[in-house]
């Protein structure tokens, strides 16, 4: 099995001159083709200059950036109080539980908080259990003139 010249050209044009970057399944064939064909070696030489230049471009020191990311990561993985509360209520066990119950619980929490707050702060609304005397007094204040006419 051999490689065609078109395929060798396509490989070098795409992956460059260095065999280590060529597709693994065609590497051996391409190396053999290059060894047997001077024009293939010339093509590799043509692309080697670009690869050499690309090799020179090394990323500057990013250690500060990496430290920042690691400290952010530590904060993320620690989670907040709400996450810890959720984990305590519903620890990660099954995917179904995680997908259904946790969002449902989160959705219910404002409702529960609202009920508790409303129960605690009645905002001056008192019970409607009036005494018999109070009801008679309130009835006496009504205007019954139209009814009698």
């Amino acid at each position: 099995m051999t490689l065609s010249s078109e395929r060798f050209t396509a490989i070098v044009e795409a992956y460059g001159s260095q065999p280590a970057r060529w597709p693994a399944e065609e590497r051996a064939l391409a190396i053999a083709y290059s060894a047997a064909h001077p024009e293939a070696q010339a093509l590799q030489t043509e692309f080697r200059a670009l690869d050499d230049m690309l090799d020179q471009f090394q990323v500057a020191d990013l250690s500060l950036l990496e430290r920042n990311v690691l400290s952010q990561v530590a904060r993320t993985s620690e989670g907040n109080v709400f996450d810890h509360l959720l984990d305590w209520l519903l620890p990660h066990s099954e995917k179904l539980a995680a997908w259904l119950w946790r969002p449902a619980l989160v959705a219910c929490m404002p409702l529960v908080c609202g009920i508790l707050l409303a129960d605690y702060f009645s905002f001056g609304i008192e019970g409607v259990q009036n005494s018999r005397e109070e009801e008679l007094y309130l009835l006496s204040l009504n205007d019954y003139t139209e009814t009698f006419e």
Binding site: L62, L65, V69
Partner: peptide
């Protein structure tokens, strides 16, 4: 971390943006 941050830096060429993208990736 190193591979992701270097890839983002070579794509964006700016360390602030690289940091944002790297953090978002790991988030």
């Amino acid at each position: 971390l190193k591979s992701i941050s270097h890839y983002a830096f070579r794509m964006l060429g700016d360390s602030k943006d690289t940091e944002d993208i790297t953090q978002e990736t790991f988030l």
